[in-house]
């Protein structure tokens, strides 16, 4: 199934894109997404371990399942304030 991942800050710069499209197997979780993203965009590999993920504007866990219609975001460590 095709899913889209939004990228921000350094992740966006390293990937050179605001969004990445991945093809993952049905039943994929955030952990699967993290691995697929590292494989497709090797520039992100070293920082992905530090990144959180969100599904539909809510923080997700590594075991959270993803669906094709979900809005998925890769969130590097935040630095607001």
């Amino acid at each position: 199934m095709i899913i889209r991942i939004k990228l921000f800050a350094l992740a966006q710069d390293l990937a050179g894109a605001e969004e990445v499209t991945l093809d993952v197997a049905p039943g994929a979780t955030i952990e699967t997404v993290r691995e697929a993203l590292a494989n497709q965009v090797p520039e992100l590999k070293s920082m992905l371990v530090s990144c959180a993920f969100a599904i539909n504007n809510e923080y997700a866990t590594t075991s959270s399942p993803v669906e094709p219609e979900d809005e998925i975001a890769c969130l590097p460590p935040v630095s607001g304030g």
């Binding site: 921000f8 800050a9 969100a54 923080y59 975001a73 969130l75 590097p76 935040v78 630095s79 607001g80 304030g81």
Partner: peptide
């Protein structure tokens, strides 16, 4: 509130 904002709100500074 300020501590939680810095910890949880997806904002980034350059």
């Amino acid at each position: 509130l300020m501590d939680r904002i810095k910890e949880l709100v997806p904002v980034w500074k350059k």
